[in-house]
Design a protein around this nucleic acid. Sequence first.
DNA 1: GTCCCTGCAAATGGTTTGCAGGCGG
DNA 2: CCGCCTGCAAACCATTTGCAGGGAC
Lengths: 158, 158
Amino acid sequence: MSCPDHHHQHAHGPAAAGRAELPELAHRLRRQDRKLTGARQAIFEILRRQRHPLSNKEIFAELPAGDCDLATVYRSLHLLEDMRMVKRFDFGDGVARYELLAEGDDGHHHHLVCTRCAAVVEIAECFTRELEDTIARQNGFTAISHKLEFFGICPRCQ
Amino acid sequence: MSCPDHHHQHAHGPAAAGRAELPELAHRLRRQDRKLTGARQAIFEILRRQRHPLSNKEIFAELPAGDCDLATVYRSLHLLEDMRMVKRFDFGDGVARYELLAEGDDGHHHHLVCTRCAAVVEIAECFTRELEDTIARQNGFTAISHKLEFFGICPRCQ
DNA sequence: GTCCCTGCAAATGGTTTGCAGGCGG
DNA sequence: CCGCCTGCAAACCATTTGCAGGGAC
C-alpha cells in the first residue's frame, strides 16, 4: 500500500516509469522550501500505482491505517497540484479527483466515465484543442483552456 | 440561440418569447400531480429573463424579498430539471447553475467562462457530438453524453 | 534551531432533508 | 379536503482552516 521502496507489483508496468520520479519529487519540493515527508511520499506512491483519477477519500483509504490525516491528503494534493505533479479532474459529482502527471506532461486528456459503475476509460487524444483558438478569436478571450468529459454506460453495465 | 419554432426572442425582448411558456409549465406540472405555485412561477420568470446560467443563490437573490426559502429554490430547480425545463451546468467551481430550456430543446451547448469576472458567453454549436459515436464504438459504451466548458480571460479583464 | 508539516477539531459553503403547518386543485 | 409545497432548522458532505506540537533539513 504505501511502502515506497521495495514493492514492485507491476515490475514492468506503469510503476517502472514512475520509479525515477521520487528524486524528482524531492527535488521539486526542496526548490520551494518544501519537505519530502512520509505522507507526501505515500500519497505519491498511491497515485503512481493507480493510474486513474482518485478522490481524496480514495487515496486516504489506500493509506495504511493512520498513516496520515484526511486533511493532510487534501493539503498534499493541493501542493502536488501547484507543483504540477498531479492534475485535478472534475466528473461533475462534486468530488475532486487526481491523476499523477509525468514530467513535462501537462496531463491534458479526457475521460469516459460509466454512470453506473464509475469505471473510467482514458481518452488519449484531445479533439478540441484546435477549437480553442477559434473560440478565443471569435470572443476576444485569451488564456483559453477547456474541460471535457464523456459519460455513458460501460459494456459490463449494459 | 435555441428557440426553433415561432419565438422571436430578441425582436420584442425575451419576455415575449417566454410568455407562452407559463401554461406549458402548468400543464407539465399537472401531468405529474404537481402544482403551479407562486415560488415556481417566480423562479421560472427569473430564468426566463436572465438567459444565462444562474446559481441557486443568484436566483434566490433575484426573488422579491422573502418570496420563498432557499431550500425551496433548490427543490424547485430539481423539479424543473427532472421535467427537462431547465438544464444544469457545471463550471467546476462546486456550484450548480441552471438555464431555461425551450420546449423540445435538449439544451446542448457549451459556455466560455471568464476566470476573472465570471462573464459567460454561450457557444452555439457543439463540435464534439459526432465524436460521441466514435468514442462509444471504440469503448463499447452506450448512452453517451459529454460535458464541455471553455475557460479564459475576457476582453475587459485582459 | 527554524520553519514547514501534521493531527485534531471546528468552521465553511453548497446542498439536502425531516417535520409540521399551509395552500393549490 | 387531500396531498403536494413550503419555511425553518438541523443534517450532510466535501473541503478548508486555526492552532499547537512534531519532524525534516
